[in-house]
Design a binder for these strands. Structure first.
Lengths: 330, 330
DNA sequence: CTGAAAGCGCTTACAG
DNA sequence: CTGAAAGCGCTTACAG
């Protein structure tokens, strides 16, 4: 590969001039620029970005910590991150952590070794033990009480909206299948559910809370348990669409009609929500926008360029489809 | 951040010795090692990997070119890449190309600028105009007639197996909904389908080929057209699961019973295949293994360490579920 | 507008 | 086993 030195020799100028022609062309005379550009073409010179990054002490790379890249919601968030990173000339390193703290800190540490300039964390952990001054943005599932800027949904409000809707359909015995309990998202959605019940003066029944883990299978097994109660719920609100799809499958296996016998709702509005049978009532989240906003925010944090908003909330939408309907049990 | 210089001063040794303590500890006396390690601890020194990469002329980073990260099959492949990359101490840069050649070559060019050591390409394009000597592995959707090592399925054999199975169920009028025609995968699966018909002495009907684009919607619209024929097909083989799920939705909308009125099969065995209604008959592909094998192969190419196999074929499996059944039309 | 020079933080032959 | 020194390919104050 040709280096800047090769170009400078052929052009008969200093390496400084070649460098300037590339980075600050207005500081170079038109004539010199022409000569240099010709030499660049001739040598097929491509600047060594690794060397440049090393010299300028910035990698123009960010790392995204994601619990599971194969999750259909996260993969859309990452698509949003990636698109915006491209337009800002940042490269995106993938840190699939599988929820493992060790992997998280390994990846997060890439900032300390100059391999990345900042971090986008999609999980509700702080990858650093104490508040460091590493640029980091927390998106989707956000920790409370840290200095990290967050981009999130008002998950309590969204869960309240869904629960309100189910109540409006005449449901009183409404179960909820939660995600893993250590996640902020789970906690917020749970409190939104409880609030809605309270506002409607419906007594909260602890048996109606079933802990899942955001997987299809946990949606199935939770539903199996719930439907064995003496007074089974007439509606089940699942904290994500996968669990709701699992719940639908289980309900059908038990011979139940949806939504006549049981209403089932999800959260996320993944693309399959529209294609399952019946189509899923759910909360739509702007997945790509989460990614895009997170990347823009991280850019501002890294480059101290623009206002840093501590907490950003994006809009959600209740999508009513046919997996839910009026309570026909009483 | 502490540098190697800081450590060397505190330890009272040269920077060379600090460097060796980290990279070739057996070349350093136990006593010196102890002193150096203490100094490293004291200063909380983290080697600057960017500087190291620059110095050693390798980035220990690879870039993966993927048409769409949000595709549930690709995201599993990437998970496989990422896991293996981790164990080989490589970082993974994400290149979501959206099928755009310009983006592909931008990302591929990162190897020429020292930002990456090699490329995994998930699409059937050569990102370089002419055969370059850039380390690259082509996986899943592979180009014919290049020097790139490929890791793929025998897609023709897999499509033949599915078609054979449908024929064995008494189907003769079997339609196929293809992916985009410029993809090698599409071509291979199409020829497998044709071969199977030929082997069974079933006359191939060009009207039974409907071109889709691997999306739900194209599965729906293709099915709408196919079912309007005077003699509509009794089975539809879709080249991926999304189109099959779209086809199922459309068939239901038209009041058809699956599989009684129409058998529908997919390809990929994404996680939703098991949860749609009826569960989808499909071809299972080892998505993670594709990624993992691709990464191992790329490692060997980059480091010229181990045998390079030009074409690797992984195993597929026919998964029979309830979206297909015996032809009950004649 | 241009060039000479320093230097980013490492690694690694080379000499001892 | 250890150190002094060169150098990876750039960028950027500084001087002119």
């Amino acid at each position: 590969m040709a280096t800047i030195r090769d170009v400078s020799k052929i052009a008969g100028v200093s390496v400084a001039t070649v460098s300037r022609t590339l980075s600050k062309p207005d500081k170079v005379s038109a004539k010199t620029r022409k000569i240099v550009n010709a030499a660049i073409l001739e040598t097929n010179y491509k600047p060594d970005i690794l060397a440049r990054n090393f010299r300028t002490r910035k990698s123009s790379t960010i790392v995204v910590l994601v619990p599971d890249i194969a999750n259909p919601f996260f993969s859309r968030v990452i698509r949003g991150i990636e698109q915006t990173a491209q337009s800002l000339d940042y490269a995106v390193l993938l840190g699939d952590t599988q929820g493992d703290r060790g992997r998280e800190s390994t990846y997060a540490n890439m900032v300390n070794t100059s391999q990345a300039d900042g971090i986008i964390q999609l999980d509700s952990h702080n990858p650093f033990e104490n508040n460091s001054n590493v640029p980091i943005v927390n998106v989707c599932d956000c920790i409370r009480g840290t200095d990290m800027p967050t981009i999130e949904l008002d998950n309590a409000a969204a869960a309240r909206k869904m629960t309100d809707y189910l109540i409006s359909q005449g449901h009183k015995n409404i179960a909820i299948i939660t995600g893993t309990l250590d996640s902020t998202i789970t906690q917020d959605r749970l409190s939104g559910y409880k609030e809605a019940l309270k506002n409607a003066s419906i007594k909260f029944n602890p048996n109606n809370i079933n802990v899942g883990d955001y997987s299809f299978l946990s949606g199935m097994s939770a539903t199996r348990m719930l439907m064995k109660y003496q007074a089974p719920p007439t509606a089940i609100f699942c904290m994500n669409d996968e669990m709701a799809i699992g719940a639908i499958k289980q309900a059908k296996l038990m011979g139940l009609k949806i939504p006549d016998d049981i209403s089932i709702a999800g959260f996320d509005n993944i693309s399959f929500a529209e294609y399952c049978d019946p189509p899923l009532t759910t909360i739509s989240q702007p997945a790509e926008e989460f990614g895009s906003k997170a990347m823009s925010m991280l850019y501002r944090v890294i480059n101290q360029d623009g206002a840093i908003k501590k907490n950003t909330f994006l809009d959600f939408e209740l999508i009513i489809r046919n997996s839910t309907g009026r309570n026909s049990h009483d």
